[in-house]
Amino acid sequence: MPQKIILDVDTGIDDSLALLYLLASPEAEIIGIAATAGNVPTAQVAINTAALLELTGAGGIEVAAGADEPLAVPLRTTEDTHGPQGLGYAELPVPTHPLSDRSAASMWVELARAQPGEVIGLCTGPLTNLALALRIEPELPRLLRRLVIMGGAFNHPGNTTPTNEWNIHVDPEAAKEVFDAFSAAPPDRRPLVCALDITETIEMRPEHLIALAEAAHSLPIERVDAGDQPEWRSAASNPVIRYLTDAVRFYFDFHHLYDLGYLAHMHDPFAAAVALDPALATTRPATVDVELAGTITRATTVADWAGMWGREPNADIVIGTDPAVFFERLVTRVGALARRLYPEPPS
């Protein structure tokens, strides 16, 4: 049976690949998508998400808008990382399907209550919506089958401050509420946390875009590189490959600008893959908390690996994986989805 997924996103280039990965996976059934303010504001996240769903013929999936601001601090967005609209250089038609009538927090609660023990929550953005949902329904840690979070940095530098990962940085109060609440989850339902320690080993390169185009039977096969001008756009015959090329190329450019190489860290699609198959990851239990008061360490995720706090573990942190296996799945699945959706080049 397909695994029922609530996806909570701040779409976002790598969020969009997570969405494509789930849509391309026969074992996944997305039952609702929550739009979270983060990479771009909530309204733009909802537009981006709905547009991608329509590109892939999945426009009937519910998209619910969440809060416009974090719980306690002003919203910070990151268009420099993801582009002015959040999708890099890519542009998609304005979606025609209406958004849900219910809020993202209400959607979380109502879907989990209706299918107790069956739903996997996957959060690839700030945790604002889930924190608000927990305020409505504190039993969510026991109602969900599992929660998977892309967020945090433990034995690894941050990507926003020296110690902060972006998703936690945007709304640290929400992250703390979530980790505190999930201390009540049974051991087999502890959140799986994909932090920078592992997601920054998931390095997408131009060769992966070539492999996706080949898998989709898209022409021409285009190789992007650091010398491409910002105004260059893909001429790929397959609209999904054209979208991916234009979106991911912006992400490559961003990483290259900061001397990380001409590559892109695929944080969110890796979390999606782990949500569907936890065997992709090696994990270690820990008690996770979020620093809120530190002058220079606010929003840092802290893991008590040794039980020094005397509190039971509330998370299983991913500490190992094989990136090659992940990318083989990404290319195979998303390439096949693109080929199935658009089997012939447009005339």
Rank of each mutant, 00 (worst) to 15 (best):
R189F: 08
L19V: 01
A264N: 07
V109F: 07
E177D: 12
E139H: 12
L22I: 04
E54Q: 11
A281G: 06
G320R: 05
H265L: 05
S16W: 00
Y21W: 08
S183V: 02
V274E: 00
D8L: 09
N159P: 10
E231S: 15
A272R: 02
L23T: 07
A279W: 04
C123L: 14
A306I: 04
T96M: 12
L71K: 09
S103F: 04
G57C: 09
D197F: 00
P157I: 08
L143S: 06
T321V: 14
V331T: 05
R146Q: 15
R284M: 09
A24S: 15
T300Q: 13
A271F: 08
R249L: 13
L244D: 00
Y21C: 04
V248D: 01
A58G: 02
R242W: 01
H265P: 00
G38S: 12
P162G: 06
L140E: 07
D228T: 02
A58K: 11
N159E: 10
R233C: 04
K176Q: 15
T124S: 08
V290T: 05
A213G: 11
W166E: 04
E344D: 15
P70V: 12
W232K: 15
A264K: 05
R339Y: 13
P343W: 08
L244M: 14
D316E: 14
E118P: 11
C194R: 00
W305C: 02
V40Y: 04
G335L: 07
T332K: 14
E110T: 09
M150L: 15
N155Q: 13
V224N: 03
E118G: 10
R142V: 07
E165L: 06
A247C: 08
A195M: 00
V45A: 09
R333I: 08
P220T: 10
L143Y: 10
C123N: 13
R146H: 14
F250I: 01
D188K: 12
P187R: 12
L219S: 12
A18F: 04
G261T: 03
V170L: 03
G88V: 07
A211S: 13
V290K: 01
W232Y: 14
C123M: 12
D277F: 12
P230E: 10
P157H: 06
A50M: 13
L263S: 06
A264S: 15
L17R: 02
V334R: 01
R298Q: 13
L92C: 08
I136S: 11
M266R: 00
P313S: 03
I241E: 01
A286R: 02
R223F: 09
A226R: 15
P187V: 14
A338W: 08
L147C: 07
D253S: 10
A46C: 10
A338E: 12
V148P: 02
A299K: 05
P157M: 04
D228W: 15
W309M: 11
E328K: 11
I210K: 10
T199P: 01
H169Y: 15
Q85V: 04
E177K: 06
V331Y: 02
G261K: 11
I221V: 15
P84R: 14
N129E: 10
L55N: 05
A35V: 01
P141N: 14
P285F: 02
